[in-house]
Amino acid sequence: MSGVDQLKTKEFWRPISAEFLAMFLFVLGGVSSTIDRESAPSNSNSTASQSDRTKHISLCFGLSSATMVQCFGPVSGGHINPAVTLAMVVTRKVTIIKGVFYLLAQLVGAVAGAGIVHLFSPSDFRENLGVTRLGKDVSGELGLLVELLLTFQLVFTIFASCDPKRTDLGGSAARAIGVSVWIGHLFGIPFTGASMNPARSFGPSVITTNFKDHWVYWVGPFLGAIMAALLYEHIFCPSSGEPSPGRVIRREANGGLHR
């Protein structure tokens, strides 16, 4: 499981670079959506509500996730999230050494993406640009629980929608993952800013040197990811070769159908 011998191969570094680029683009697009230019001091005619901004940010992060998974999934698996990578390592889908390099690539990509956003953002927003923060009256413990639950539903969606043993899968796994991220933001933004992704929080925090309550955005997602991965793999994962319940299967004998 260590996979140290992989370091000498091109096949090892190709997905690593993909995770860097995917995270860079994800943070670049997602963090940019948090800039509320309508509320800038120079704009006295702002009518944007907090609800509108929440929907805007949620949709941007959801679409960005779906796009990056669609683009980079065939190359690296499209983790784009240290919590997802940890879940894959825990369930032995990724070697430990590859998981470590995935994590490093994701963190560097997040910092680079946040740095670019910082360069072209208005000066009024640079101090707390895209930093995930706890909402009003939200304690660290509550924030931890929220991030755990948000990441749980995301990682469970990833495992379920990408499971090669399922016989009922149709449509797009990338779309399902993007919708999961979208839902998580709609629910979680008022509480924690809806990170679900330690690297997404790490990038802006490094650029703004703001690490207040930052532990929440590592511990919560990591715990949620591990719980979702183990629960799916050991309880809900279908057995290989067996049809999923509700799947219409053709009878070999007479061509009829049964469920």
Rank of each mutant, 00 (worst) to 15 (best):
F202S: 08
D137Y: 04
S32E: 04
A229T: 13
L129D: 01
R92L: 11
P190K: 09
R200F: 06
R133L: 12
F120E: 00
G178F: 03
L119R: 08
C60N: 08
G130M: 02
H234S: 14
G140D: 11
L186D: 00
F20T: 03
V69E: 06
L134M: 08
V219P: 01
K93T: 07
V90K: 06
P198V: 09
S201I: 03
Y102W: 06
P198G: 08
G246K: 14
S44K: 15
L63Q: 07
W215T: 10
G3D: 10
K55W: 12
G184S: 10
M196E: 05
A112E: 06
R37L: 10
S64G: 15
G241H: 05
F61T: 04
G109F: 08
K55S: 13
D124P: 00
A114L: 05
V138K: 02
Q50W: 13
I35M: 12
G255W: 01
E19R: 04
C237N: 07
E11G: 07
S240Y: 09
I158L: 10
A160F: 08
I116L: 15
V216T: 09
M196T: 13
H185E: 08
K93D: 13
R53G: 02
K165C: 11
P238C: 09
M1E: 14
K55C: 14
N45K: 14
N128S: 07
T132M: 08
S33T: 13
G184A: 05
L103N: 00
M68F: 09
G203K: 07
V219C: 10
G246R: 13
G140C: 10
M88Q: 08
G130P: 01
F125D: 06
P198I: 12
G193I: 03
H234W: 12
T167M: 09
S65D: 02
P41S: 13
L104Q: 00
S201V: 03
G130F: 05
T209Y: 13
C162L: 09
S123A: 11
V94E: 03
V216N: 02
S42E: 14
V94G: 03
